[in-house]
Amino acid sequence: MLKYLMLVVVFVGSSWVHPMHVSVCEINFNQKDHSLEFTHHIFIDDLEKSFRQSFNKPYLDINNPDVGKTTDELVAAYMKKHFKVTVNGKSALPKYLGHEVENDAIYTYMELDGVKTLSSIRIFNDVLTEVYDDQVNLVHVEIGEDISSMKLTPQRKIDELKF
């Protein structure tokens, strides 16, 4: 419940004013399917600013990037570089599944198969820290009814949870 309230406050409240730079990653441990499911919520204008800097373009529309790559190719490459996972002490590469755009946010989806148990998860997340020195990347890990969270910043890009 708290997780959803925080998402509503962050994304709805900031749709009028975008005073802070924040992304939210939700990680769900699907025990039945032995997988981790990742959903990232990122403001479109912030991600577009990062892509504009990368491609040295004054304008870039994430829905029609016009840089020789599709939106999914851009986002998948970006996430692979800026979001890394270590599960139970072993590095893992989540598979990028796709994205959705809703209002002023982009939702990206990734999955990591073959996770039978979850004793620890280490996250490297420097999404948008190349653009904003006040960027905050929240990570919520849900195992059944339990939710644990991390707050990652440009000064602290890595954190670990043990279960």
Score class of each variant (00 low, 15 high):
S23Q: 08
C25G: 01
E26G: 01
E26I: 11
E26Q: 11
E26Y: 11
N28S: 11
N28W: 10
F29R: 04
F29Y: 06
F29G: 06
N30D: 11
K32E: 09
K32Y: 08
D33Y: 04
H34V: 04
L36G: 03
L36H: 04
T39R: 13
T39E: 13
T39S: 11
T39L: 12
H40D: 10
H40F: 09
H41Q: 15
H41I: 14
H41V: 13
H41R: 14
D45S: 08
L47R: 01
L47C: 07
K49M: 13
S54T: 15
N56D: 11
N56R: 13
N56K: 13
K57L: 14
P58R: 10
Y59V: 14
I62K: 05
I62Q: 05
N63G: 15
N64S: 14
N64F: 14
V67T: 05
V67F: 06
G68E: 08
K69G: 01
T70C: 02
T71I: 04
T71S: 07
T71A: 04
D72N: 07
E73G: 03
E73D: 02
L74W: 00
V75E: 05
A76D: 11
A76Y: 07
A77T: 14
Y78G: 07
M79W: 10
K80N: 14
K80V: 15
K81C: 04
K81D: 14
K81G: 03
K81S: 10
H82W: 09
F83W: 09
K84M: 13
K84R: 13
V85C: 02
V87P: 03
G89E: 05
K90L: 12
A92P: 00
A92H: 04
L93Q: 14
L93N: 13
L97S: 06
L97G: 02
L97Q: 03
G98S: 08
H99W: 01
H99T: 02
E100R: 10
E100T: 04
E100G: 03
V101R: 11
D104A: 09
I106S: 02
Y107Q: 09
T108M: 08
T108N: 00
M110G: 08
D113A: 15
V115N: 00
V115Q: 04
T117F: 05
S119A: 09
S119W: 06
S120D: 07
S120A: 05
I121P: 00
R122C: 08
I123T: 06
N125L: 09
N125M: 08
D126L: 03
L128N: 04
L128I: 08
V131Q: 01
Y132Q: 02
D133Y: 06
D133Q: 03
D134P: 01
D134F: 03
D134Y: 03
Q135G: 01
Q135W: 02
Q135S: 00
V136N: 02
V139P: 00
V139M: 02
V139K: 01
H140E: 12
H140R: 13
V141M: 01
V141I: 13
E142K: 15
E142Q: 15
I143Q: 14
G144Y: 01
G144V: 00
E145L: 11
S149M: 10
M150K: 00
K151H: 09
